[in-house]
């Protein structure tokens, strides 16, 4: 299973500057309401901005949004 780090190595967690936290998987994420979200990916992106429609996983909703007129939407 190349996606799972060898026993001796700790799972790597990467905090990105502008987006999600990347966690080496597979992972089970437990949410405050008791719901459990499972990701079997080799790497999972956890949403930290709170805007994801697929929370707790990042869906790139953290991106800056603009109109063509170039004024910021948020």
């Amino acid at each position: 299973m190349p996606s799972v780090p060898p026993e001796a190595l700790p799972h790597r967690v990467v905090v990105t500057a502008d987006g999600p936290i990347l966690v080496e998987g597979p992972v089970e994420v437990e949410l405050p309401d008791g719901r459990k979200a499972v990701s079997e990916r080799p790497v999972t992106a956890l949403c930290v901005c709170g805007n994801s429609r697929r929370y707790p996983f990042c869906d790139t909703s953290h991106r800056r949004r603009v109109r063509s007129a170039r004024e910021e939407e948020r």
Partner: peptide
């Protein structure tokens, strides 16, 4: 497409960094 929303949110980071 749902698979690609999540997978490519990860792939973006891996590709860039």
């Amino acid at each position: 497409y749902a698979e690609h929303v999540e997978a490519d949110a990860v792939h973006e980071q891996v590709v860039r960094h």
